[in-house]
Amino acid sequence: MAREKFQTLTEPMFYILLCLKRECCGADIAAQITALTRGRVTLGPGTLYHLLESFQQAGMIEETRTEGRKRSYLITPKGRKALETEYRRLLTLTEDYQTCIGKEDVP
């Protein structure tokens, strides 16, 4: 995964970082995302693993614990910043939408 891709986050990336504000293992992340999005976003274990590896390499999350085969992670300040930046970007998009379309047209 090229690092520049993290300048904007996909939905799975956004939710992974969001879940990792508290220490969490991979399987729990997948379950939390499904619960949080009420099944709208499903994350396959392969995809989750590759994203966690990429985030870790980019210094956006860190491994905190290993219990047997389970690894737990936590977001880093760099990851928080990326999450915050994405949040601001989404807010900007929403505001721009409202400015152009108007609140009355929002379904």
Partner: peptide, 14 residues
């Protein structure tokens, strides 16, 4: 490796 075990664990738990 640990990384492979971790990947396998994620897949197994799914």
């Amino acid at each position: 490796t640990e990384a492979q075990q971790s990947l396998e664990e994620l897949c197994t738990s799914a």
